[in-house]
Simulated assay, not measured.
Amino acid sequence: MFKERLEQRLQALKAEFKAGQDMLAELEAKQASLRETMLRISGAIQVLEEVLSEAEGETENN
């Protein structure tokens, strides 16, 4: 009886550990995707700032 309970507890802990590993992998994938998205947004911001800066310079020259 005691050994059965230990084995059940072990199986429950293994299942919980596996679920944690799966969740961690999912979160890491989401984090990587978010970083890529933020990098693209950052690049777009930089381009727009440069275009606006050039436009302001042209306006001042005219």
Rank of each mutant, 00 (worst) to 15 (best):
M38Y: 07
L24Y: 05
A19C: 00
E36V: 02
L24H: 01
K14Y: 05
R40E: 09
E4Y: 02
R40F: 03
Q31T: 13
G20V: 05
E7Y: 02
F2H: 09
E54G: 02
E60V: 05
G20K: 02
T37W: 07
M38A: 12
M1K: 04
I41Q: 08
Q46A: 07
E4F: 10
K18R: 15
F2Q: 07
K14P: 00
A44M: 06
E36K: 01
L52R: 05
Q46G: 03
E50K: 03
N61A: 15
L48S: 06
E28D: 11
E4T: 10
Q11G: 08
Q46N: 05
L24M: 09
L13P: 00
M38L: 15
L27E: 13
A32V: 10
T59H: 07
K30E: 15
A15R: 12
R9D: 11
K18V: 15
M23S: 12
M1E: 13
L52M: 09
M23Y: 04
S53Q: 11
A55T: 05
A19Q: 14
A25M: 11
S33T: 14
A12V: 09
R5W: 13
Q31A: 15
R35M: 07
A15G: 05
L6P: 02
F17D: 13
T59L: 15
I45V: 12
N62R: 10
E60G: 03
R9I: 11
F17T: 14
L10I: 12
M1F: 12
K30P: 04
E50A: 10
V47P: 01
K14T: 07
M38G: 02
F2M: 08
E56Q: 06
K3T: 10
K3A: 11
